[in-house]
Design a protein around this nucleic acid. Structure first.
Lengths: 328, 328
DNA sequence: ACCGTCATTGAAAACGTTTACTGTGTGTTT
DNA sequence: AAACACACAGTAAACGTTTTCAATGACGGT
């Protein structure tokens, strides 16, 4: 283990005071060019790396940001994480990550624990209740992901528009009776999707069969498939891709052909969709850009605490593959 | 933004010195029970939370661990991350994560950048070369994941055994001519898998067609499928699941039935396998336990720097689903 | 009574930075 | 020539902890 080289070592070797070294590194214009270069040379030579903890102690900034997600096995959140990580690095910030295992209580606790070590945190939590989020926002600078709440900055994805595109697409193909398989009732995403749904439905005058909620997983799809078929619909709109895959599997087992007998759509476009058979028509969620956006919002807010609260929304886009076709 | 409450505030309110507060929190047996309780009560009351940066400054421990992975979109690594995150929390450590985007140079740099802020780092890097890893290990306490290197602790998964199980399974079904689709030649995992392969092959006296390397992705599978079929094999063993999915898709397009015309196996068992059609026979990699193990190894090493270097290996297990059957 | 041990506490020095304040010298203005 | 501004660099005080050291008192054994 190499002994840590401190600012003092650099100062001694460069024959200047520690203050000068500090300045050479953090506000270069305050020191004469020749000495600055000498200092930097020595620093590089010694492999000096400032101790961020010490720096943070005095500046009050840690240079870190945190993100808490409900499940690291869910590609949705890892997509976000990837974007966060990416953008944070560009701003030379490090990223703390915490996985709450879908437990809202843990989420709150994790945010609090993180709070002291980061400048701000990005919260991806469909579950935790509004009151608690608000309390957290008081003690930490917070950015919400895919959830809108008055007064809290948020990086949003316009799922409402996505679902509207889905319905437009299905109607254009000639469908009139469509099932929507709800995800969790309380989640902001599901609410947004239903909102888009309602708008599209009343514009087109189609029969909507509103079903569920179902667990937003493969098993949820297995379960929902039979119920939907019993409703005599010609198209099934699932809450997300993974649920759609469950529907697809169950339909195949029952000998129902997709898209010949019934059309099917997913939501999220997280990799499986393109790989399954037939490839799934779905809506692409810009998860990575959303992660990046969240970082930007956070950094913006930190830089300038009393600017207006930004809630930026990214567009989603329908991806037509092979599970949708005109009804028989 | 709430004003931070420091140890001094607690001390004042509890009518003791800061030293006593510190002791009450970190070494409770050094202070009288009655005062300890008074201090703790005040601390809780004020919502005091120690400043980890300050503590770290003096103890030299940060209470953080880092992990760098090549790609956060790869479920293999997020599985590991999940395990890491999980176990770290149990040990009340926080987790820094960095994504190198498959760039070995970035990996090295990331480890160095992290090094100052963490007690140790877990490195998942099939790509970075041995010499560089060794240099990193000098300046940081390092644990490798799924890669063995003399003198560096490692959390390993026995992929050799997994591939042996695959071959045993195929041979038992009656296959004699089997293709293996290589992943990246330089990766430790691929080497291990081939080692298992060689052992199994010579034990059973089967014809092995060693093909590739192919990119360990869906496209790699598409490409490999045709080559493998041209070799007149009755079974195809892919480097990993995602590649196997590519093979599966290509075979379906060509009208080759799986498993009737040819058997197919994957490796990793990361979710898609169970969902595709037909469900994929594969080898389950214990990624989450591996993440946990890595944390344990790291913490062990930190606690006791000159214990012997542990390189623990976790078992893999064949999961027989529906893509393997006796040859026609 | 005296000494030693021990439990309990406080004072103060660290840890590695940044930054306000103070000095220098140099050049410019009057 | 005096005065002043200014660029540059150093001193020292913070930041919030932990930990060494010393001080106090109580108690038991002689």
């Amino acid at each position: 283990m190499s002994v840590a080289v401190t600012i003092r070592d650099v100062a001694r070797q460069a024959q200047v005071s520690v203050a000068t070294v500090s300045r050479a590194l953090t506000s270069p214009d305050l020191v004469r060019a020749t000495t600055r270069e000498r200092v930097l040379a020595v620093a590089a030579d010694l492999g000096y790396q400032p101790n961020l903890a010490a720096r943070g102690l005095i500046t009050g900034k840690t240079g870190n940001i945190g993100i808490v997600v409900p499940d690291l096995n869910n590609p949705f959140f890892t997509g976000v994480l990837k974007g966060v990580q990416n953008q944070a690095r560009l701003a030379s910030h490090a990223v703390f990550v915490a996985d709450s295992d879908e437990d809202p209580a843990a989420e709150e606790q994790l945010v609090r624990a993180m709070a002291k070590q980061v400048d701000g945190v990005i919260l991806c939590s469909p579950g935790i209740d509004e009151q608690q989020v608000r309390e957290l926002a008081e003690s930490t600078t917070l950015v919400l992901l895919n959830r809108r709440m008055r007064g809290v900055p948020a990086a949003l994805m316009n799922s409402g528009s996505g679902l509207r595109q889905v319905i437009d697409h299905l109607v254009a193909l000639g469908h009139h009776r469509i099932a929507y398989l709800n995800g969790p009732r309380t989640s902001w995403s599901n609410k947004e999707r239903r909102r888009g749904l309602r708008i599209a439905v009343q514009r087109h005058d189609v029969d909507l069969v509103d079903m569920g909620p179902f667990p937003p997983r493969y098993e949820g799809g297995l379960q929902a498939a039979d119920l939907a078929m019993a409703e005599n619909v010609t198209a099934i709109v699932a809450y997300n891709d993974i649920m759609a895959l469950g529907v697809l599997a169950r339909l195949r087992d029952r000998g129902v052909r997709v898209p010949d007998d019934v059309s099917l759509t997913g939501f999220d476009d997280l990799m499986f969709g393109a790989l399954c058979q037939p490839p799934l028509t779905t809506v692409a969620m810009p998860v990575v850009p959303a992660g990046r956006l969240a970082v930007d919002l956070l950094l913006d807010r930190l830089a300038n605490r009393d600017a207006e609260v930004r809630q930026d929304e990214l567009d989603t886009q329908l991806i037509v593959r092979a599970t949708t076709a005109p009804p028989a």
